[in-house]
Simulated scan of single mutants.
Amino acid sequence: MSGTRTAGRGIKDIDPDHLARLNAGEVEAATLTDCLAVDFTVLMRNILPDIGADALAEMERGAATGISKRMSLAARLICGKLGCAALDRLGRHPSDTARGWACFMIGAVDDMPLGERLAAIRPYADDRHFGVREWSWLAIRPHLAAHLESAIATLTEWTADPSERIRRFASEAIRPRGVWCAHIGALKAQPQLALSILEPLRADPSGYVQDSVSNWLNDAGKDRPDWVQALCARWSIESPSPATARLCKRALRSINPDR
């Protein structure tokens, strides 16, 4: 989960009282370890008591799968049993996992136009919690990849948003490779398709945004190193700022590992 805070401890080291509060939906996860420790079945039973035994049993059967698959499963079960009416309940919930389920519910809705889907996910892209912000782009990334031209056009507008979280989403959501997600083949082959997003962010003052853009270019460099080198060289001339210098150094870390 890109951009998350981690801790030097395992799930078994989490305080039992804290874990119980996580599973009750009373507190947010403080670290990635906390996120991974949440028992989805217990949390679902506690915050959605009307979900039904069948859904809880299916959630329990999926307990051993990866967290992204469990997020998708939870969203599918909630949509199937409670419908979209549950979205508002989860979107306002104090549990970051519950708000993450809401993200995946937005991703699971059939036949939603991309513009409406992006509008629906936008509050979660600007969520206070690092985990929810990651789930927001992961949940709708397949739709962005399927409608790439429209996605780039809309996300280009997001690069001017006052919120660094929204600006970061514009870049992070369509990284060519990304983390915990399928690659976007079109952007691996033609990274220049996303220049309308990358260019406005080349000197962004936020380190959060700089890291995302540099990671985007590091992804692109795995397939198009010459393109990334040329872009960074041009940016360094046209935008000789500390922000751009930091971004380009990180972008070239795999191409020039000794620099």
Rank of each mutant, 00 (worst) to 15 (best):
D54P: 03
A53G: 05
A53P: 01
G62A: 03
E60G: 04
P49I: 11
A37D: 14
A55H: 08
L32P: 07
A29F: 08
E60V: 01
E26Y: 00
E28D: 05
E26L: 14
A64H: 14
L43E: 03
A57T: 05
D34N: 08
A30G: 11
M44Q: 12
L32G: 11
L43G: 08
V27S: 05
A64F: 10
L56D: 06
A53I: 03
I51W: 09
C35Q: 12
M44T: 15
G25N: 05
D39I: 02
V27D: 11
I51Y: 07
R61N: 12
G25H: 02
L56R: 03
V38G: 12
D50M: 06
A57Y: 00
L43P: 10
D54E: 15
A30M: 10
M59R: 04
A63N: 06
G52Q: 07
A57C: 02
A53T: 12
A57D: 12
M44H: 11
M59S: 14
D39M: 01
E26I: 06
P49H: 10
D50W: 01
E26M: 05
A53H: 08
C35D: 04
V38R: 12
T31V: 06
I51S: 05
V27K: 00
D54C: 05
V27C: 06
V42A: 12
A63W: 06
T41L: 02
G52A: 07
G25S: 05
A29M: 08
G25D: 03
I47E: 07
T33R: 04
A53Q: 13
G52S: 07
E26D: 12
G25W: 01
L43K: 06
A55L: 05
D50E: 15
V38F: 14
C35L: 15
A37S: 15
T41I: 01
I47M: 04
E58F: 00
E26Q: 13
M59H: 01
R61S: 12
M59E: 10
A55K: 03
V38D: 12
A55G: 14
A53W: 00
V42F: 02
A53F: 00
E60S: 10
G62S: 03
C35Y: 15
G25K: 02
D34K: 09
G62K: 01
A64S: 14
D54V: 13
I47S: 07
A57N: 05
E60Q: 13
P49R: 09
G52C: 08
V42W: 06
E58Y: 01
A37L: 10
A29K: 02
A63T: 08
L48F: 07
D50T: 07
I51R: 02
A30E: 13
F40W: 13
V27Q: 04
A57Q: 04
E60Y: 01
A30V: 11
A30F: 01
N46E: 13
M44S: 15
L56M: 03
T41S: 09
A64W: 11
I51M: 10
L48C: 08
T33F: 01
P49E: 11
A30L: 13
L56I: 03
T33Y: 03
R61L: 13
T41V: 08
A57P: 00
A57S: 09
